[in-house]
Structure formats: C-alpha cells, structure tokens
Design a protein around this nucleic acid. Structure first.
Length: 554
DNA sequence: CATAGGTCAT
C-alpha cells in the first residue's frame, strides 16, 4: 500500500476521532516499514492526539529518529488536548536542548495555550535555568501570524494581565495585522471586563460593530458580561435584549450580572424565562441563582434551587455551590444549619467557604464562632492581609480593642502589609486614580471643601463616623481624618466636580469598601441626588437615594 | 501541526 493511502486514511481518522482505527493503521504501517518515513509519523502523532491517545502519541514520538517542528507542534498539542498542560511545558525545553530546534509559530501557540491554562503566561514556562517568558519567545518568532498574536493576547487575559493584553492588541493593529478574528476580540472584551474599564470597553464595542461581529454569539456574550462587570447593567441588558440567538452562556451572564448588581428578583425571573424558552441551565447558572437568593434572603427559594439542580438537572454540587449555599444560610442567620452543611458536604472547606461563614458571623454578632473561623482562615492563608483585617473587624465589632491591637501586632511581626487602597474613575476618556490619603492632586482644595460640606450635611442627618475600620493605633480624631481621605471618597468628590451633571458616577476600587465609606456613600447619594456605583474587590454597590443594592451585607 | 467566551467567596 502506498504512503499516500495511509496519509489519507490517517487524516480521515483524525477527523472522525476513531482511536481503534488509528491503532490499526499504525500496526499496518509498522509492517510496511513506512512508519518512520516523514511525513507519516507526524500525521500519526496528530491523529493519536486528536483521538485522545496521548500515551500512544508519546511512545511514537520517543521512537522517532527524526523530529521536526511539525512533530513537536503535534505532540505538544496532543498534551494540551488531553488537558495535560504541565506535560506540555515540561517536554518543551527538549525541543532545543535535545533536538536543537527553535520554536516556530505553531509550537508557540501550543506552549502559550499550556501556559494560560495554568495561568502563568508571564512566569516562565522554561526550566533548566532558562530565564524567559512568553513575551521574549514571541519576539524571537521568525513568523508571527494571527494565531501567535491571538494565543498570546488570550493567554495574557486568562492569566490576569489584561493591561499587557490591551497594549499588545494595540500593537497588533499597528503592525498591520488587520484581519482581526472574533476570537481575539472576545479576549479583548474580556480584558475590559476584568479591568472594569467601561470607556475602553465601549470603544472595543464600536470596533466590534465596525468589523461586523455584532451578531457573533460569543462576542455578544462577552459584551453582556463586560457591561455588567463595568457596572453598566443597563447596557448589558440592552445587548442581551437585542441578541437574535441566546445560549446558556448568554442567559447565565445576564442572570449573574443582575444578581451581582443586587437585582435578585430580576435574576430569578430571567431564569424562569430561560427555562420557558427551553434553555437548560448549567452548573454556573446555579451558582448565580443561589448567589441571587442569598442577597435578598430567599432561603427556601435557594434551597429549592439547590435541590432542583441535583434532581431536575443531574448536576452534583461542587464546592462553589456549597459555598454559595452556605453563604445563603449564614447570611440569613441559619448559622447552625450552615455548620451542619459544612460537616456533611463531601469537600474539605477552602478559604472562600470559611470566609463566607466569617462574614456572616460578623454580621450576626456571633463573635465566638467568628474568632474560631478567622483563626482557621489565618492558618490557611497567613500571608493574606485581608484575613487579618476581617479578624480585626470581628474583634472591633465586639469592641474587643485589646484583641484588635493584638491582630495588628501579629501583622507587624509577620510583616504582612495592608495593600494600598486606590479608586479609579473615568471622566470622558481620561482615567483618574486616587490613593488613600493622597494630597497632591491639582484639584485637592475643591475636593476637600466639597467633602467638608458633605460631611457637615451628613452629620446633620445623623452620620457618626465609625473608625473601628481603621487598623492603625492612633488618636480618635486622627482615625476620623484617615477615613475622610479614603480613596473612594476622593474619587466621588472628583466625579461630582467633573462628571456631566446627572450622570451615574462609576468607581472601581481595588480593595473592599470599608463600612464607614459605605455609610458615607449612601448619605452622599441622597444629598446630591446622584447614583454612585462602586465596584470593589468583591462586588458591586449601587448607591441610590440613601440605599445600597447590597442591602448592607458584603 | 495552532489561537477562543460566562459564575461564587476574600
């Protein structure tokens, strides 16, 4: 039988994903002594990979006397497809160490994909003392094409380097790669979502329209998510409403968006609508739904959904589902039932699980349980400043000042530093960043006098500063002064001075909003009759008319 | 021979 016949059969087999045929062809090939003649082994490698027979592929690969770029690309891709990114990366250095080959644009795409599934695009995939990251490898590529750009940009977004991804996207356009495919665009929309940069997101949206990808399903899904994450839930609903076609991702995105913005009833009614039009919810949908319930204390509805997920849809709850469910129970004061769930669930509780319980203990004034949970958290994550702050808040809530001081000492002894807080606000196309305590801003005098006026009016309306959120050891007056300069207040003051009157003021903060600022923002929203939306490290706060969408529970 | 999208908790 001629080689071309085998080639054809193998390609057919790769398309049809029939592992047994792949093995049979391989056996026949060995008999004909053709099996090590290029390009047959490469095609066989590819076929094995596509049929999910990664071990057979590796065996063949090891036997091959001559391996070229194609062999390497095929074996690395086979490992990615078998969901073994670690093996992809540990094999890869042998490409130059043993075979003396430099990565080409095919190999690059596979390696970057492996890095991004591990969330480590910028950390160095290379072993044996080779200092390098995906950027350097990219620079050295003899050929860069759309695949290389897309792989790197998507990988950066997935590993949390959204800013790098955005710059790279701009560079890609400048380099003349104008054939932008929807894949890279969806990654870029995702980067805007993660960074919560609404203005840039809008620009990318207009690019999507210009390129004619508006009706592409997964781009629309990404846009819905982006607008929701950038705190513009109305725009998210608008896109969703105008979609011609909606899948489970579209519905889940808008349900989660509504839930995160405190619109639990809306989330639940969207779910009914979704089921009515025949879309089956998946495990992610239920996370969003239980989360929605926990925000408005719909305990029995949440329990029903948790049951329905298992009984009607055969989805067995993950640790995330349990954590969400626990959050629902403990927020609504069912701390005993929550403990039972922790004891009986088939998972070891992780940090988020304990954190959900801790937040509830704080809210319901169960200091004893709170301290136990916080100690547990501290042993799990001794390097995370937020745990110390939670513990300190538990003590402060119970007015146990000596213990507050002890936590502070412990932080100092372990050299755990509180991350500096900052808040961003977009005015037109310009983004302003404010750090806590910042006093060098050109408009600081106007901002200061506005904040002072607001402070006076707030106090007339009954505001009492709550300085228990200030961790440092200082005089009472000094503590109040600290609060006064928290970054979100600076950003709000700037927004009130500079933004178009009547528009929503949108702020993105890197840390959680402190309890005192939360109170202040509620007051400000009613005094100036403006809506303020703050996206903090964990959720959205929509302040309007003196109230917040989070129901004061966060 | 290759690149892709959504969720909770902190």
């Amino acid at each position: 039988m001629p080689a071309s016949h085998f080639l054809h059969q193998l390609q057919l087999c790769a398309r049809r994903r029939t592992p047994s045929t792949a093995k049979r062809l391989h056996a026949q090939l060995i008999k004909t002594a053709l099996h090590l003649c290029v390009p047959l082994p490469n095609t066989l490698l590819d076929t094995y990979g596509k049929c999910g027979l990664v071990e057979d592929a590796l065996h063949l690969f090891d036997e091959m006397p001559h391996r070229d770029h194609v062999s390497w690309a095929s074996i690395l891709t086979a490992h990615n497809q078998a969901n073994m990114p670690h093996r992809t990366l540990s094999m890869f250095p042998a490409m130059f160490e043993s075979d003396g080959l430099q990565p080409d644009h095919f190999v690059f795409a596979s390696v970057v994909k492996a890095c991004s599934s591990l969330g480590a695009v910028r950390q160095g995939y290379a072993r044996s003392g080779r200092k390098s990251d995906a950027f350097e490898m990219f620079e050295r590529l003899p050929v860069k094409n759309l695949f290389s750009w897309t792989a790197l940009i998507s990988g950066l977004v997935q590993s949390g380097h959204g800013v790098d991804a955005l710059y790279l996207f701009i560079e890609m356009r400048r380099e003349g790669v104008h054939i932008v495919d929807p894949l890279v665009l969806s990654s870029i929309v995702g980067a805007c979502a993660n960074l919560a940069v609404l203005e840039l997101g809008k620009q990318v949206h207009s690019l999507v329209i210009r390129l004619g990808y508006e009706s592409c399903l997964f781009i629309s899904n990404a846009l819905v998510d982006m607008y929701a994450k950038c705190s513009d839930i109305l725009a998210a609903k608008d896109i969703f409403g105008r979609m011609h076609q909606r899948d489970v991702v579209s519905w889940t995105s808008i349900i989660v968006g509504a839930a995160q913005h405190g619109q639990a009833e809306k989330a639940l009614s969207l779910y009914d609508e979704m089921v009515a039009v025949g879309i089956k919810p998946n495990e992610v949908t239920f996370v969003g739904l239980i989360y929605a319930c926990s925000h408005v204390g719909l305990v029995s509805k949440g329990r029903a959904l948790f049951r329905s997920m298992m009984e009607d849809y055969g989805i067995s709850p993950s640790l995330q589902h349990y954590t969400c469910f626990l959050d629902l129970l403990s927020r609504s004061g069912h701390l005993g039932e929550a403990s039972n769930v922790i004891d009986s669930m088939p998972f070891e509780p992780d940090e988020p699980t304990w954190a959900a319980l801790l937040s509830a203990c704080k809210h319901h004034g169960d200091t004893q349980t709170g301290i136990r949970v916080a100690d547990h958290l501290l042993s799990l994550k001794p390097e995370d400043p937020s745990t110390y702050i939670l513990l300190s808040n538990v003590y402060a809530g119970a007015r146990m000042w000596e213990n507050v001081a002890e936590v502070r000492k412990l932080m100092a002894a372990r050299e755990v530093k509180k991350k500096p807080g900052y808040s961003c606000i977009d005015i037109g196309k310009e983004t302003q960043v404010f750090y806590a305590g910042e006093t060098s801003h050109p408009m600081k005098d106007e901002m200061f006098s506005l904040l002072k006026d607001l402070d006076a009016e707030m106090r007339r309306r009954g505001y009492v500063p709550d300085s228990s959120f200030v961790l440092h050891d200082m005089e009472h007056q000094e503590k109040e002064r600290q609060l006064f300069w928290h970054s979100e207040r600076l950003a709000v003051a700037y927004g009130l001075l500079k933004a178009v009157p009547g528009t929503v003021i949108r702020i993105v903060k890197n840390l959680r909003v402190c309890g005192d600022c939360h109170t202040v923002l509620k007051f400000i929203s009613s005094i100036v009759k403006r809506d303020i939306v703050v996206r903090d490290a964990t959720r959205y706060h929509h302040f309007s008319n003196g109230e917040c969408s989070c129901n004061d529970f966060w």
